[in-house]
Nucleic acid binder design. Structure first.
Length: 331
DNA sequence: TTCCCGTAGG
DNA sequence: CCTACAGGAA
């Protein structure tokens, strides 16, 4: 198929939010099959320092349409997908886009990227980093509120956070999920940014991953949104789950499902055209919140169930699978 | 009570 | 692999 070009682009997002939101679509039946094959690949984050210095104009992201109207000369390095794309993936993607355009999922409200989009580049990047950190396991409105309070108190920059009291940070970000640990991580991150990056945030994936509380999911999000430099796909639990249900990813040379988001990311990057790397996250997150839910997915209202190997097959409910910890003990 | 779900740490 | 972390929701 056609090779992806590369490009930076706005938006993507993550977090989860969790308010309700319905989405009614059409109905279909089931059936589907799969065949995939992945190979292993590495693909390493490139230097990227080269071109970014000054952030492109990213502002408004709203991933909504991501009219990649501008494509950077993001030299096509070796990152192009090399694996065999799963059958019908384009139809499936289009079908999901249609379902997603009908109603809004919680993710549509998005909060973390817009944080500080009116700030100067450096401050904006720092805000993106902090927003990402706070957003995990936290509803968007809660994250947004925390960011607002930090901003109002002048605590959305490395130097001020570094000087601030951890208890103060904790109080301001409450009630985001894991606020105690996040407050501590914010202090550490602020100090690192101040000491090593002149108050800016790290500009490479590797360096972002060294920050406490920043793992692969957030690091890719920050590269995408903060630096407008797409090094990889931001794979969260929704992307991980849905790609496996669709048969879009598998362990190298086998048909087994991938077992971790990182494994999913590598498998997905083998074939998904790069222009989809950023939009795939908000697309599948929203789809995962409304239709392809973790348990009891609404296959009946999914327009692409015809192409999904897992459609109508998730019986779940039975404790036979994993989850033996408390169960086996009790039984 | 169990699940949600990203990261750290055992 | 497993559990802690916070707290909301099923």
């Amino acid at each position: 198929m056609r090779n992806p070009a590369s490009e930076p682009n706005p938006g993507s997002e993550s977090s989860n939010g969790g308010s309700a939101s319905e989405l009614r679509v059409f109905v279909r039946k089931k059936r589907g099959r799969k065949t995939i094959e992945t190979q292993e690949t590495k693909y390493e984050a490139e230097p990227l320092d080269q071109k970014l210095r000054g952030p492109p104009e990213i502002e408004e992201f709203g991933y909504k349409q991501v009219n990649g109207s501008f494509q950077s000369s993001n030299t096509s390095f070796a990152n192009v997908p090399t694996g065999e794309p799963p059958p019908n993936w384009e139809k499936v993607l289009e079908g999901i886009r249609k379902m997603r355009s009908t109603e809004d999922a919680p993710v549509d409200t998005m909060g973390c990227e817009k944080a500080g989009n009116s700030l100067p580049p450096k401050e904006r990047r720092f805000a993106v980093l902090v927003s990402s950190l706070l957003s995990s396991q936290t509803k968007d409105n809660v994250t947004h509120g925390a960011i607002q309070r930090l901003l109002q108190n002048g605590l959305l920059a490395a130097d001020t956070i570094d000087k601030a009291d951890e208890a103060t940070i904790k109080g301001l970000i409450y009630p985001v999920g894991f606020y105690t640990r996040k407050a501590a991580n914010m202090k550490k991150i602020a100090n690192i940014c101040l000491m090593k990056y002149d108050g800016d945030i790290p500009s490479s994936l590797e360096e972002l991953l060294l920050l406490p509380g920043i793992g692969p999911k957030m690091a890719h999000l920050v590269m995408n949104v903060g630096w407008n430099n797409v090094q990889g796909i931001c794979v969260d639990t929704h992307v991980h789950r849905i790609c496996n249900r669709l048969g879009w990813v598998s362990k190298s040379c086998t048909k087994q499902k991938t077992s971790t988001p990182e494994e999913t990311r590598e498998a997905l990057q083998l074939w998904l055209p790069k222009e989809e790397w950023v939009p795939i996250n908000p697309l599948l997150v929203g789809f995962g919140q409304t239709v392809c839910t973790p348990l009891r997915p609404n296959c009946g209202m999914c327009s692409v169930s015809d192409f999904c190997p897992s459609a109508f097959r998730e019986i779940s409910r039975s404790p036979s699978k994993s989850k033996r910890s408390s169960l086996s003990k009790k039984l």
